[in-house]
Write a protein that binds this DNA or RNA. Sequence first.
DNA 1: CAGTGGTCTAGACCACGCT
DNA 2: GCGTGGTCTAGACCACTGT
Lengths: 238, 238
Amino acid sequence: MIDLDSDRPAYRQLAEKFRTDIGRGRYRPGAAIPSEVALGQRYDVSRNTVRLAMGLLRQEGLVVTRQGRGTFVRSAVPVRRRAVSAVPPGLRTDATDREVRADTRVAGLLDVAVGTPVFERRTSSHDGGLPQETSASYVPLDLATAVFQRQPCATGTIAALASAGVEVTEIHELVRARMPHPDEARALAVPTGTPVFTITRTMYAGDRPVEAAVDIVLPADRVELAYRAEPHGRPPVL
Amino acid sequence: MIDLDSDRPAYRQLAEKFRTDIGRGRYRPGAAIPSEVALGQRYDVSRNTVRLAMGLLRQEGLVVTRQGRGTFVRSAVPVRRRAVSAVPPGLRTDATDREVRADTRVAGLLDVAVGTPVFERRTSSHDGGLPQETSASYVPLDLATAVFQRQPCATGTIAALASAGVEVTEIHELVRARMPHPDEARALAVPTGTPVFTITRTMYAGDRPVEAAVDIVLPADRVELAYRAEPHGRPPVL
DNA sequence: CAGTGGTCTAGACCACGCT
DNA sequence: GCGTGGTCTAGACCACTGT
């Protein structure tokens, strides 16, 4: 089954075999894949070669490995859709607030000088077991007391600002995706081979930026981002 | 420098060292990292252990390896921002059109029966050298001739529909991120450790879906997605 | 040609999870 | 205890890139 003299390396052939087997439902989500030793014997390759193959599949997010247990086809995880300015239902959020000085990025977004005191709120949200989102948001000092009495979600911020007489008129979101840093992978409990979204959100009241949320980080295997636009609306700033 | 008796594996210690070195600018983007053999001698570990470390950094998107040349800190790539309903400037696009029968996903999006004939346009866009986007979009047959005379980008579709008397009133985009399949990685020229965005875009004329674009795939190291919303606008369908 | 990363072997011991 | 994946070694040959 595996041709060591082929142009294609043995470990890629093996990975390809399992890729198609998984794709065709030969191995169901959650199912165990034979052990590395067993596969090495079955296909007459060394265990390290099997490990290279499994490493590929892990990178692609197809399988997860658990020490002492085995290798398993990745199970589907419930996906939560997230929309700008919509309340994420059923999330519990922890927040820590403090006063900091704006770094270049925050200063740029809030349109203040670098070093200006601003309020920072760091949050992490989880849905029962699984973490869903971490973020750091910043608001100018004069709006801080109003905003931070409320729960830290987008609509919470909007409502809080409204009750302080500030009407949010526009929200910009800038979406990126990348592989998580090791500590993010731990904090968000994302398996190997899972990217994260990072979002930078800026809320405006007229021309004034009133909240900048940077480093909103979401696990891409559990979140979809839903956006809606009108074709003749003002496009976001490019 | 590397403690083989530590709780943390040698290859992770080595990866951590280069992670911080790169982060601190000790190695500039594009700079070469010492060869695997050299690192093995320098830190008194086997070459395989060095390779494990480099494999981690590659997964995280920090370095790229080039056979016969060496290992290099990943260079920054120019980032293009993409906005819904905005023209991507400077892109060249190849398209192939054909008539197909709607599969379940397309049928669901276009609100027609499975098997209904629809027009398909597959496109791939590139910016000079680098590929930027692949997609497959579908329109009902009666709108096909109008749409497909135009260039295959979002505004092109909108303009084409407008000239056929169909006014697009709403656009939904659903954004996901994941690791690319091997063939996508090749087609989009994404290095190991780079995720891709996938977008499902649906255009509506009133309540009628008039275009469904599935499998819009973009390399996440070269694209940012910019969205704009109004806090009291109708939220996207969740 | 020499030097690089890519592939592969055949072992070894460890940490973990289950029974 | 036993089987699993996790780590690590010390070699080998290959494919590719440069001079």
